[in-house]
Nucleic acid binder design. Sequence first.
DNA 1: AATGGATGCAACCGCGGCGCT
DNA 2: CAGCGCCGCGGTTGCATCCAT
Length: 327
Amino acid sequence: MGRQPCCDKVGLKKGPWTAEEDKKLINFILTNGQCCWRAVPKLAGLLRCGKSCRLRWTNYLRPDLKRGLLSEYEEKMVIDLHAQLGNRWSKIASHLPGRTDNEIKNHWNTHIKKKLKKMGIDPVTHKSLSITTEQSQAQPDQQPNQPLQEPQDQQQAIQVEEDPKFEPENGQNKEPEKAETSFDVSTITEEAKEEDQIMIPLFESIMNELFTDEVPIIEPSEILVPSATSTSPTTTSSSTSSSSYSNSPNFFEDLQLPDFDWSDDYNDTKIDNNNSSVALWDDDLIRSWNMLINDDGDGDRKQVFDTSANQYPRLIMDSESWAYGLF
DNA sequence: AATGGATGCAACCGCGGCGCT
DNA sequence: CAGCGCCGCGGTTGCATCCAT
């Protein structure tokens, strides 16, 4: 007897989401917050299963998502974390704010994996393919996707909150009492500096080669667009994402969106110190939201996001809308 | 300009974990 | 403690777009 499907699939829509569906989902979650996903489609008037709604929200509609290519540092993080955690994409994603497990997984499979192979590095073991071949002959029992047991010095490159069940027997590397979902940017930034210094030579050589490869890395300075012009509807950017970012240090403080588990560190300009100043909402997204939410001609509904006010995307929610759920 | 393969990404599927009864 | 239901995760698929010919 198989497991029952998560939802009654009869009459439910599948495939790409339409703007209308996005609008309904955004509207519902902005009004009610994230609650029982199973109930969401019915309450929001969607012919989707709850799972599909959750996926759409977490992977695409969530306002705290970064869009666009992973930065050099993010890619570096992914590789290092993958070496320690294996294919545990959600764990890896939890260390990269604004990135989803799906996005990282896709990026790994389509970009990083290919690059590593091209350079003769086994993307599973993170070791030279020749070494891996020798080892696989010597140790045929080794499981694929098994998190690589790094040498102690490399384990310290980035402290990763290990799942207890994956914890090494001694458990010495664990940082206790640290909420896994709250990404400590300042810590990572500091770690990044240390990491760069203590990175093992093999990994460093990989990275040097990796990031001088054919894929152009977009520098933050290239992403940042003067705010005064970024709100212009005649923006020349053809991309629907990452066209501009807020750099207001108080932006997230203004938002007050507990549901997204904002860390105080998001308000910290330490990010800027790392020359990777990014805000997680871009004008295009905000504009899309406004369109989605306001295009029904309902004069009563206020504009949710005012992209022109103060030159930054700013949340102007009526208090009633945020009174429910976790908002 | 047409076409077919390659690529990238959004979305789906099925399973495991966890909490509740 | 077992059964049930929900959520989240990781693997996979399908489709749109890109690119070479």
